[in-house]
Each structure stands twice: as structure tokens, then as C-alpha cells.
Design a binder for these strands. Structure first.
Lengths: 191, 191
DNA sequence: CCTATAACCGTATGTCCATACGATTATTAC
DNA sequence: GTAATAATCGTATGGACATACGGTTATAGG
């Protein structure tokens, strides 16, 4: 059903169409979801979880290869940018839901939780960076995380809108943003 | 009708309700707008224009009082943050429309134009800053504008979501962001 | 083997809504 | 003053959709 959202938007998502797209009947959808709202909520949770899972993968993979925190963070953040068609579709879905979240408390809750999760992960990375020497001591992890998360979100929409040169510029800005926080070399492992 | 959107979301906006809210008949709405989509488009253009107008006011007011570009820019940017109930409502409206823009090319066009306008204004301010000495020469206005616009958008959603301390932190981050670009003193007027 | 539970289907219903349409009143132009 | 245009109304209609519901097949559990 996320395909449906990505292609035609949430307005085009009807229970009947969703069922048809999944190759099942309307009745079966009802069997699994008491209401359409539940169905939508489930989809939002699923797609948000998918992004988070991919980021976790990148993080653990990077850790295993002993890359610097800065490199790992940059890769994880870039995963949120709609740089290829797959991520464009994913972005469309999450963004459409985020828009709906303004009118739907249940969706808003998922949105807030997802955002809080991203913030916490960035803050943790910065904190680790302080301990291992990649980040200057005295840097406040929460402030830095808020800033990075903010710039990431803004860049994502800029890339999506696709003004000429936006993608390259966004990548450069993101790199600079990370570099501005992780200014040192890693001297000890404390991850 | 923006009140309707702010209170109950776009899904609750029907032609009948909009008419009723405005104290007129359905027929009259149809007289002015050929279709509901046209009505929505008009509303989006109106609210986007309103924000832009307020920013223009702040800018010209600041210029008249000969404030530094940095101060003016900071005030103009803050206007986009949902710090009071009026701006929260406005934010809800623009955000809801931005979400719909992903499924509606006409709305997307307005969204893109608005974003491009903001970017251009920031870039112009930075360019002026370079000429008058508030910004270090060599700073690329477009890159700086992209960064500032991105962080602004991200901060706005953080403030809106209203995590504890988000508003204060956002203000601080925004101030730092502007200060990072406008590092010098104004030595000559070239606005 | 049988029974309860789950998976699954198709249709019926009632609601809501955008739009169409015809009619009526005000406003302006000549 | 009258013709034309704009402003305004109320209702009718047809479509789309969420949900309710009753039924059927499969899948274990005892």
C-alpha cells in the first residue's frame, strides 16, 4: 500500500484499492484492521520503522568496520535524503503521513516518536564523539543534535523539490554540518 | 477557511463547510471557484503570500531603522517559527498544504515557488552582507542560503512538535546559525 | 471426526460530498 | 428604464467510499 501512496497520494488510498493492490478482498482487510485509520497507522509505523532499521544497519555495519563516528553518522543521515528513486518514494510516503499527522493525533504520535528517536541517536553519537575525542569537549549533544536533525530535514525537502543543483549542494552542506561537529580524531573506542 | 484547516485539517474542508464558515452559500463559492481544487489553491497562495508579506514588512522596517542585516534576517526568519498561537495556526495550514503538495502538482508549484522565494531572499541578504562587510568575502550566498533555509524549516517542525525546551533551543540554534554567517560589522550601506 | 477459530470473500447500506443547475436579486451601463 | 452582467441562493444528483454483515473455506486441537 505504500506503493499506492507513493504513486497517487493518500487521497487515492481507499480500502478497496488497497485490498485490490494487495490481491485480497475488502473483507480481509477489515479482518486485519478494524478501521481504515488503523490500516493507515500501521502503514506509517511500518515505513518509519523501515527507515530506522536501515539506519541501524548502517550504524552497526560501520561500527564493525571500525569507521569513525563522523563517517557513520554522515552515512546514516544521507539515508534520509531522497537521492534515488527508492528513497524518493519512501520520502513521499513519510512526508505525506507527516502532513496528515497535523490533523490526526495518532499519526502525530508516531511522527513525534520517530523524530525523537532520530534526535536521540544523533545526540548519542555526539556524546560518544566527545568521549572518544572526535568532538570537542563542551559541545552540548542535544543542541548539536537538534541542529543536525533540523538541517537534515530541510535538506531532504530541498532535494525532493529538486531545484537545480540541490542534491549536490545538500550533500555538501550535510558533510560540512557533520564536519563542524566532529572536528577531532578518534583516539579511543567507547561506542 | 484557513481557520477551518487550522482547526480540523484539510480533510474536514468541504465546500459546504467552507461556505457556511464564510457565511455564504455553496452556490456562491462555486461562482468564485470553478472547482474545489481551485479554492484550495487560492487559499494556499493566499497564506503563502501573507507570510512573505509579513517578512517583507519586517525587512523594510528593519532597513528604515538601519539595523544590521544580521538582525533583520534573524527577525525575518523567526517569523517562520510557530512560537505563538497565531503562527502555530499558520504553520499548520502551510504544512498541511505542503503535505498535500506531494500529491498535487498545482500545490507543489506554489510550494516550490515559495521555497525558492525564501531562498532567494536569504541569498540576497548574504550577498549584501558580503558587500557591506557583515559577511566574510568568499562565502557562497547560495550555499549559505540553502543551509539557513534548511535549518529554519527543520527548527520550525521541532518547535511545532513541541518537545520540551524545543522552542528555546530552536531560537538559540537559529541565532547561532545566523551569527555563523554574518560574522562582521556593517561598514557601508549597499542595500 | 468434529468443533472452534481464523482466513477469506462479496454485497448491501447509509453517508458524505463535489458539482450541476435553475432561479432570484442586486448592480451597472447605456 | 431596460438590458446585461454579476452576486447570490437552494436543491438535486450521481458517485465514491467506509463500514456492516452474513456466508464460506481452511486450519488446527482435542
Amino acid at each position: 500500500m505504500c506503493g499506492l501512496i507513493a504513486e497517487r497520494g493518500l487521497d487515492a488510498v481507499t480500502v478497496a484499492r488497497t485490498a485490490s493492490r494487495a490481491g485480497i478482498s475488502v473483507g480481509l482487510v477489515q479482518h486485519y484492521f478494524p478501521s481504515k485509520d488503523d490500516m493507515l497507522l500501521h502503514a506509517f509505523e511500518r515505513v518509519s520503522g523501515a527507515v530506522a532499521a536501515r539506519v541501524a544497519d548502517i550504524t552497526s555495519e560501520g561500527t564493525r568496520h571500525e569507521r569513525s563516528i563522523a563517517e557513520i553518522v554522515l552515512a546514516a543521515l544521507a539515508e534520509h535524503l531522497p537521492l534515488d528513486e527508492a528513497r524518493r518514494a519512501e520520502f513521499r510516503v513519510t512526508r505525506v503521513f507527516a502532513g496528515r499527522a497535523l490533523e490526526n493525533p495518532a499519526l502525530a504520535e508516531v511522527d513525534a516518536r520517530t523524530a525523537a528517536g532520530l534526535h536521540a541517536e544523533i545526540a548519542r553519537a555526539v556524546g560518544n564523539g566527545v568521549e572518544c575525542g572526535e568532538v570537542e569537549p563542551g559541545v552540548d549533544a542535544d543542541t548539536a543534535a537538534a541542529r543536525v536533525a533540523a538541517v537534515l530535514e530541510g535538506l531532504a525537502t530541498q532535494v525532493y523539490r529538486g531545484a537545480p543543483g540541490a542534491a549536490d549542494r545538500a550533500w555538501e552542506v550535510l558533510r560540512a554540518e557533520v564536519a563542524a561537529v566532529f572536528t577531532g580524531e578518534c583516539s579511543q573506542y567507547v561506542r
